[in-house]
Design a protein around this nucleic acid. Structure first.
Lengths: 201, 201
DNA sequence: TTCCGTGATGACACCAGGTGACATCACAAA
DNA sequence: TTTGTGATGTCACCTGGTGTCATCACGGAA
């Protein structure tokens, strides 16, 4: 953008603040308007008042602009598991992780999440990236469980079940008539899975 | 490559045969020699005696050259599930799928698979694609289970467990000292998971 | 034999994602 | 005032990926 633009009360600012957030918003808007493929990185940057080069200083690639906040979730999950009582079962521990992560899913972000999800669901490349992120979360839980002494196979299984619960909860959370309480949804999803475990045979 | 090259006993052939396989082999070789990122599509095509354009007629993108044979596995899994006895439990049905898919993992392909796996493990982009393929297999199993009347949540869980077993079996299969009998490995992995289900809490 | 359709490939131009190197400039600290 | 610093812009460049048209050996039909 033009350096030295007027921002507020005539004060000079070298750059508009919140560069990252502006890029994310511009990208989401354009993806909604024209679709992901029909939007170039240069266009995103332009709408945010920046250049292509700057975009790639904030995001490793075009897809990443839709996947911010992943590290926050990883951190919350880890903390949630660490804070779980020592005698908690693996699934209870996973429940603690999901509950800790729930704080991210506040009412205000639902509309944005919904738009984002529509775009992601439509593009193979984006689904791919989403799977990578989901896997990273699953691995986070798995490692945290193993550090608590849970055997490998059990940790693997429990974290995967947690991932299923998380995905199910998210889908229900963004549904138009969905319950806005993510923690509750995650708990329910986890309970459902716990019950159906007995029907595997 | 040069059209009209001599092939066998002086016979003229417009093109060397097995274009696809030649590209796959050339790609694997180059990836091993120089690494995935340091290999351009043009170089792969050149080694196979073809051009970049032809490469992209066989593979949708650079990564796909490492992911052939996926559809075969999808078909085998589907058939395996369809052929499972009607009264089989969900996990037994999954076992049938894995066993049906095992025919792909013959002794002769182990060395190639091993090389391939080293490359895939090293590159984020390739891991992404692998996750997409794995997910596609999981969804195949899930849908097949649902068509047999298994409830959604159970089908979801069972197919995911199947995917874990498959992955574990594959890792053991390509291990240097691994058991070359994929079907046996898959069965063992599935049994382990079945047992650890009771320890989830 | 001659001709023609067909399918796989080559040639070429082009776009967009992504990167390296260097310039710019407001701000802050000395 | 000077100097350093960090975020941004500029520019050139590479490579993945695609659209379009040309080429040419093959098989079959006349």
């Amino acid at each position: 953008m033009t350096p030295g633009a007027i921002t507020y009360h005539g004060q000079m600012a070298r750059w508009e603040p919140n560069t990252r957030a502006r890029l994310e918003l511009a990208a989401l808007e354009l993806f909604v308007e024209r679709g992901y493929d029909q939007t170039t990185v240069a266009e995103i940057a332009e709408r945010a008042g920046l250049t292509k080069r700057t975009f790639f200083r904030y995001f490793a690639d075009k897809r990443e602009v839709l996947f911010g906040g992943q590290d926050v979730l990883v951190r919350l999950f880890t903390e949630g598991i660490a804070a779980a009582p020592e005698q908690a079962t693996p699934l209870e521990t996973i429940g603690a992780a999901l509950e800790a992560g729930s704080v991210v899913f506040e009412q205000a972000r639902r509309a944005l999440s919904r738009k984002r999800q529509v775009i992601v669901a439509d593009h193979r490349d984006l689904r791919e990236r989403e799977l990578l992120k989901a896997t990273s979360l699953t691995e986070t839980m798995r490692e945290a469980l193993r550090e608590r002494g849970v055997p490998d196979t059990t940790a693997n299984l429990a974290s995967t079940v947690g991932s299923l619960a998380f995905t199910a909860a998210f889908e229900r959370w963004i549904a138009p008539d969905g319950n806005p309480d993510f923690a509750a949804l995650a708990g329910e999803a986890l309970d459902e899975l716990r019950k159906s475990v007995t029907e595997l045979g």
